[in-house]
Design a protein around this nucleic acid. Structure first.
Length: 645
RNA sequence: GCCGGUUUAGCUCAGCUGGUAGAGCAACUGAUUUGUAAUCAGUAGGUCGCGGGUUCGAUUCCUGCAACCGGCACCA
């Protein structure tokens, strides 16, 4: 007999070899009926799996959040069957569950189109309604290869070959159709339910490798219930409304045009926002002893050969050839320029750490398919800095940068941050011994951060070609992740350029360089903020903070007075004295995301008050003009200045 | 860069199977002086992304290119 322990702590004895379903039946017929899977010793498993030794079992019903993965995975199989039935000759490959849904990759010469979706969904509905049982079988490698080979499933054959020899090859059948699959699955297709939807079709490389065939990926989603599916679709619509490309136009922040793919035309309001970010960071880094510089936009190719950028990223650099055949490159990074400044004039260990900062505009010829609004562009501004220091100073300086990054994100309303260490990539410069030291140093920093309770992780092989890095990823209001800040320890570039300082022992010594960025790309960070706040920027960042709107012309003089008073306090204010109804003005400025509307009519003019209406609120509050402006001026003060008192 | 899609007025979009374009909003003009998300009327506005081809005739069909959108790959 074996002992099975249930979640309530009770244990019962059973004959070995009973299935999960058999055991569920001994508890109650309704539990057996409702269960779709079980958690066996902490792992999700098929209900049909046999229990052969002592175990902990928990039954999972369809409503259990853990069942969602199964619903989607089962739906992926049904999708594949539906597609193969409707489009004979299509090969199946893989179909995993992903966040918010699942996909299945197919190989077929003719493209799938959105017009095919309805037919596929209909076929899926039939398969689900037929309630076909999922049956698991374990096949031998040869058996599987023979079956898939004879059915023209070349990709599946390759998958079979790539599965480690000691692993069972599991086949799940649903009626006639079958698929190679790790499982687990629910007992039958009927359990999937009908809250599913095909979302889109897109290309994807076989095994994520751009040198291999392009497959067609059909994305879909499924939920336990219709209301949950509807809620998800609604959420997608909401996300679309905060798309920075749309808000950028609606708020008149920037635009793009064909002649400048991947480059931003910043409009006055967008540039004001951008400059607010620059001003904030400049104040803060000046305070921390950084010195700000500016380095050339166009530099001779030889410099990029020395740095190693030429060899690694030449395809992605903007090049210019002059009349005399000299080749220059638009700078794709600021670091070589900063090394030149370091090298200019003799440096002593007493000068270290030397923190050189620049709001440097860099150009990178990004692949056309990568461009995306202001998030991924070909010309952008980095809040770049390079800290030249000794090896002993790496820890302390990295931690200082870390604190700087986290406090900055906090000031912008981001406090869910993940920090990941990216280690040496395959394509790199420098000796392994230097990489060992750099990775050890940054690894120790990561350890410290972990001890402080921060979320940390590792991205193996994702480092820059000259050194390992910490990457700071922040999560926005709707849960999306954005990689922004970075701290990179570089044992290579200073030496490649022959930079040195005179150490305490009078020896010429190569400095270590820490590359750091906080916003990363100012363009991108602006976009992240627009989406995070859905255009409702905090007052201190808003490029237009206040609109004074009149009700009738009787209030014009008073409105001018209010505007002048606000301006005097440094507030960004405009007047709307047009001969329009106040409802019209309210609507227009609300759509333009103006945070504060001060409405003035005859009454306010007489009483020297303003009626305050906040963006996103229907309420109004009437206050004396002076008091209202003073409060707004306080609120509009950047957080770092507020802290300074 | 790869796969698929899209490109018509400032914006959002209509325009069967080829006969040189239309709406709403915005803009402009006039009337209206208005109390918290759209006052009324009128006017004007388009090389139908760019180039080539088929045709008596192309916004419509074919083709090349570009930009954009969704993924994939890439991201110093």
């Amino acid at each position: 007999m074996i002992s099975v322990t249930f979640p309530d702590g009770a244990a019962r004895a059973y004959e070995p070899g009973l299935s999960g379903l058999d055991i569920a039946k001994t508890i109650s017929p309704s539990l057996a009926k409702k269960s779709v899977a079980m958690v066996l010793d902490g792992t999700l498993a098929d209900l049909s799996d046999k229990i052969t030794r002592d175990a902990r079992i928990e039954f999972v019903t369809r409503e259990d959040p853990r069942a969602l993965e199964l619903i989607r995975h089962d739906a992926a199989h049904v999708l594949a069957e539906a597609v193969q039935e409707l489009f004979p000759g299509t090969q199946v490959t893989i179909g995993p569950v992903i966040e918010n849904g699942f996909y299945y990759d197919f190989y077929r010469h003719e493209p799938f189109t959105p017009e095919d979706f309805a037919a596929i969904e209909k076929k899926m509905t039939e398969i689900i309604a037929a309630d076909r049982p999922f049956a698991k079988e374990v096949w031998s490698r040869d058996e599987a290869k023979a079956w898939f080979g004879s059915h023209g499933e070349d990709f599946k054959v390759e998958l079979v070959e790539s599965i480690p020899g000691d692993e069972d090859l599991k086949i799940y059948k649903q009626g006639e159709w079958l698929d190679l699959c790790r499982g687990p699955h629910m007992p039958s297709t009927g359990r999937i339910g009908f809250a599913f939807k095909i979302m889109k079709v897109a290309g994807a490389y076989w095994r994520g490798d751009s040198s291999r065939p392009m497959l067609q990926r059909i994305y879909a989603t499924a939920f336990a219930t219709k209301p949950e599916l509807d809620a998800y679709l609604k959420q997608l619509e909401e996300a679309e409304k905060r798309d920075h490309r749309r808000l950028g136009r609606e708020m008149d922040l920037f635009h793009f045009q064909e002649e400048g793919p991947g480059t931003v035309f910043w409009h006055p309001k967008g540039w004001t926002l951008f400059q607010s970010l620059v001003a904030y960071l400049r104040r803060r880094q000046n305070e921390q002893g950084y010195v700000e510089v500016n380095t050339p936009q166009v530099l001779d190719r030889a410099l990029w050969e020395t740095s190693g950028h030429w060899q690694t990223f030449r395809e992605n650099m903007f090049l210019t050839k002059t009349e005399d055949e000299r080749i220059f490159a638009l700078k794709p990074m600021n670091c070589p320029g900063h090394v030149q400044i370091f090298k200019n004039g003799l440096k002593s260990y007493r000068d270290l750490p030397l923190k050189i900062a620049e709001f440097g505009i860099v150009h990178r010829y990004e692949p056309s398919g990568a461009l995306h609004g202001v998030m991924r562009v070909r010309a952008f501004t980095q809040d770049d800095a390079h800290i030249f220091c000794t090896e002993d100073q790496i820890q302390e300086e990295s931690l200082k940068v870390n604190d700087f990054i986290l406090s900055t994100y906090g000031d912008f309303g981001f406090d869910d941050i993940v920090i990941k260490l990216s280690t040496r990539p395959e394509k790199r410069v420098g000796a392994d011994e230097a990489w060992d030291r750099a990775e050890t140093a940054l690894g120790r920093v990561l350890e410290t951060l972990k001890e402080r309770g921060l979320k940390t992780g590792i991205n193996p092989g994702e480092g820059a070609f000259y050194g390992p890095k910490l990457e700071y990823t922040l999560r926005d209001a709707i849960g999306r992740e954005w990689q922004c800040g970075t701290v990179q320890v570089d044992f290579n570039l200073p030496g490649r350029f022959g930079a040195f300082y005179i150490a305490a022992n009078s020896e010429k010594t190569t400095p270590i360089m820490i590359h750091r960025a906080i916003f990363g790309s100012l363009e991108r960070f602006t976009g992240v903020m627009i989406e995070h706040f859905a255009g409702h920027l905090p007052l201190w960042l808003s490029p237009l903070q206040i609109v004074v709107a009149t009700i009738t012309q009787d209030a014009d003089d008073y409105a001018y007075e209010a505007i002048a008073a606000a301006r005097k306090l440094g507030l960004k204010v405009e007047g709307d004295l047009r001969n329009e109804k106040i409802t019209y003005k309210v609507r227009e400025h609300s759509l333009a995301k103006v945070p504060v509307l001060l409405v003035v009519g005859k009454k306010e003019a007489q009483e020297r008050t303003v009626s305050i209406r906040r963006l996103g609120s229907q309420d109004q509050q009437t206050m004396g003009l002076e008091a209202a402006l003073a409060a707004l001026a306080t609120e509009a003060t950047p957080p770092d200045i507020k802290r300074a008192g």
